[in-house]
């Protein structure tokens, strides 16, 4: 099996969880990776201070789509205020693969937009 393109990464890429749009939604964010032009947007519905539902949309490589898909699964049900505490190491840990410096932003774009929607913080996760 490939060390980077593991079966579950390719599965999330080909069948992304929580992919699409949500209307109405309470929070939204949109951003892109300036290196490759990949774009990602997110819609979030908040209930009782928690991420009740979430959909992401856009296009990107297997790493960015799988990372967004995996991150989306973790976020649903989480108290909104806890999203701010998620960082780059958390994403890479969730992915379970080694991410080279050239693919780092691919892996982080999903959390970047989801964190942007919940906190307004437009910076890259560190």
């Amino acid at each position: 099996m490939d060390a980077l393109y593991r079966d579950y990464i390719l599965d999330h890429y080909k069948n992304p969880r929580n992919f699409g749009e949500l209307d109405p939604h309470d929070l939204e964010w949109h951003d892109h990776n300036p290196l490759c032009g990949d774009e990602l947007g997110v819609h979030i519905v908040v209930k009782d201070g928690r991420v009740a539902d979430l959909r992401f949309h856009g296009q990107g490589c297997a790493i960015s789509q799988a990372a967004a898909s995996i991150t989306s699964e973790e976020l649903i049900g989480l108290p909104v205020e806890e999203v701010a505490g998620l960082d780059a190491d958390w994403v890479i840990d969730q992915l379970g693969i080694e991410i080279s410096p050239t693919r780092r932003k691919c892996a982080l774009l999903g959390l970047k937009v989801m964190r942007g929607a919940t906190t307004g913080d437009a910076s890259w996760p560190e």
Partner: peptide, 8 residues
Amino acid sequence: MHPHDIAE
């Protein structure tokens, strides 16, 4: 396949 993955 996304071009990034092709190049990788």
